[in-house]
Design a protein around this nucleic acid. Sequence first.
DNA 1: TTGATTATGTGCGATATACGAACAAATGTC
DNA 2: GACATTTGTTCGTATATCGCACATAATCAA
Lengths: 251, 251
Amino acid sequence: MRETDFVSGFARGLMVIEAFGEAQPRLSIAEAAKITGLDRATVRRSLLTLSELGYADYDGKFFALTPKMLRLGHAYLSATPLPAIVQPYLDQLSEKAGQSASVSVLDGTEVVYVARASQRRVMSINLMPGSRLPAYCASMGRVLLAALPEVEARAILDRTELKANTPRTKTDPEELMEELRRVRAQGYAVIDQELELGLCSIAVPLMSTRGQVVAALNIGAPAAHVAAAELAQRYLPLLRETQAALRPLVQ
Amino acid sequence: MRETDFVSGFARGLMVIEAFGEAQPRLSIAEAAKITGLDRATVRRSLLTLSELGYADYDGKFFALTPKMLRLGHAYLSATPLPAIVQPYLDQLSEKAGQSASVSVLDGTEVVYVARASQRRVMSINLMPGSRLPAYCASMGRVLLAALPEVEARAILDRTELKANTPRTKTDPEELMEELRRVRAQGYAVIDQELELGLCSIAVPLMSTRGQVVAALNIGAPAAHVAAAELAQRYLPLLRETQAALRPLVQ
DNA sequence: TTGATTATGTGCGATATACGAACAAATGTC
DNA sequence: GACATTTGTTCGTATATCGCACATAATCAA
């Protein structure tokens, strides 16, 4: 790609959108400039553009994103066949298991939920399509990392902030790489309260007809309800069944 | 706002993103140019920019959005306190009612789901945060339109394509305005299979402490399970309860 | 109030981008 | 295979945008 095939004004605008988030629901021009590292004048133009187009509200001081912003993510969700294909299977799986079931894909160091069928909420965090979790400590993340060539998985771990969310969280890169090998060999990953105390989950990869891993499928359960050691025995047959049913439908 | 405070390259890029959708999951440069009405050279630069930034994949012929695109919608969802606040109440409501419950806001002529607790799927369409339905034939849409000044509600109806999704869909603007008055007076809206045959729903407004309507809350049920006429009797108390509980928490 | 500090708005020269057209490549048609 | 059509790419130039420097406005502490 040539230098001139890149619209930097567009790229800068996208950076400005991503500056908003949980900690920054409302941003002034100067704050957004600080977060993005862009010039204030540039950020101001981007924010005014967003406001003019209805993607943001402006009260003269602060900017806040509007629901119109969801059109952009929705453009992906509705354009991608995967969520629609897996949803009915997810609903069925969730009902049979009596637990929440989800499908996610990898984006950088994080897993992104693209579909979910939830039972009673067990986590403090509310997961929905678009939600993100660090890959290294999530069952679907382990499965997706295990599907990559080792060097790539290692590269992702190296640029992840490996923090211990709970006393059980594995944070040593070597130990994690070893775990990925185990996951690759056995074809599934089990997480025992590494993300949040009281929460276990088990995940398997979803493969395309050509055998490529395109996503991960999991079941999450409260640790009080199901011991991590029992997860495989209890849910692996259901997961395998769903995995097999989806295989010819993906890609 | 001055002319020069608008970054047209950014605005054009956003148009290109929105060109993707259910019917257009993969776009060539020429297709995207046709949909957006922009010059092919311009669209090409935007798409290559998206691809360079990892928001799109490019196989040399077609572009497709990547999961990274969900970061943009997620910037809104995580930046807005509403979804997180309402979710636990929604879960509770959904469980008590044994039906799906949702919260949405208005964006132009459509309602946008910002939170949802789903039970067994009853609709052909899969709703999730970010999903959109035409306001005129959805229960939450009726409630949100009823909360607007009549001229504004009328203006929205006038620029909506009022199509009959089912034989029961109300499509006459006058009749709809009359219905909005009824909704405003009674404080809730009931939809009887106007969006999809076999599906009924009932919605109430969610008000801020200052009495402003900021969102709508609904319960959807299969018509076979609950007759539309029974909806209010059966679910209105639960909805009112949730509405009251949320009122001090919103805004 | 004052003055210090921080945030926002604006004019301008340098640079980047859009447009239309021309060209090249691919695709479809007869 | 030749022709017509569509699509992708490149180029020159008019126009738009960037980032800087400065001007103005808001905020706050003493």
